[in-house]
């Protein structure tokens, strides 16, 4: 042992690990999504469906409301023949039923996100443990999963909003033809679209909070676990 070169390592005091900039976490989580694209698509499809449902209902409501308020007798007749409620009470009853359906679909979607992220955390226990052995802080690991989920959520919400809007537009077009364009509630629908994307994104982040905490609390020794 005497012949070995022992580098003079100054006994520096143990320091505190630095907190990495968010851009690093963004970079890693984007790469992780890209590599597991197929898996992300499955997770995202749930959000796309829920947001598309939300957006299509909002769009058709907005269109019908605009038509109803148009005061055009020809359109009013059309609405009646299509069996669409025009009295205030009927509209109210239909609305509450819709709200119930929307809340339910969003709830199911949120549970789906939590489930998918929990699976992702369990699947990657060794990766998480390894990262911690390499010096990752708890907060960094949590950020990775929150970012991953929010990227999925934002992308899926935008896709869902576009799909929901288009489907609803086509359905309205079939029923009312040119009147839809004539009385198109552009600003209202734009507001709804923004709201739908926001709801989808927030839902994804909220759904990922528990899995992210679970990942952050994982012990580095998990990296050593061997499943045979």
């Amino acid at each position: 042992m005497q012949d070995k070169v022992v580098r003079d390592r100054t006994r520096a005091k143990i320091e505190k690990q630095i907190v990495l900039p968010l851009s690093k976490a963004v970079q890693i989580s984007l790469e992780s999504l890209r590599m597991r694209f197929g898996r992300s698509l499955v997770t995202m499809s749930g959000i796309v469906l829920a947001i598309a449902f939300l957006m299509s209902i909002w769009t058709s409501n907005a269109i019908i409301e605009e038509l109803r308020d148009s005061g055009d007798s020809r359109i009013e007749l059309l609405l009646q023949t299509k069996g669409i409620e025009t009295s205030a009470e009927d509209v109210k009853a239909a609305r509450s039923k819709q709200t119930w359906l929307i809340s339910l679909s969003l709830l199911v979607c949120g549970v789906g996100i939590t489930n998918a992220m929990l699976m992702a955390v369990t699947e990657r226990y060794r990766e998480i443990g390894t990262m911690k052995c390499l010096g990752a802080l708890d907060s960094f690991v949590a950020k990775l999963f929150l970012l991953e989920s929010s990227f999925q959520g934002a992308t899926a919400s935008i896709a869902g909003t576009v799909i929901g809007f288009l489907l609803s537009l086509v359905a309205s077009w079939i029923s009312f033809r040119g009147a839809v364009i004539q009385y198109f509630p552009g600003i209202k629908i734009l507001t709804f679209a923004g709201l739908a994307v926001l709801i989808g994104s927030v839902l994804s982040i909220v759904g990922a909070v528990f899995p992210a905490i679970k990942a952050a609390k994982m012990q580095p020794v998990e990296a050593m676990r061997i499943e045979r």
Binding site: I14, E15, K16, Q17, E31, R34, E127, C133, D138, M224
Partner: peptide
């Protein structure tokens, strides 16, 4: 006696880990 930040620093700078199952991050 070390807190979480110091432990992370220790694992990052003082110790290098090699595992039986290699444990490379598959996405990188």
């Amino acid at each position: 006696q070390l807190d979480a930040y110091e432990l992370a620093w220790l694992r990052c700078r003082k110790i290098g880990y090699i595992f039986q199952t290699f444990n490379l991050l598959p996405v990188m």
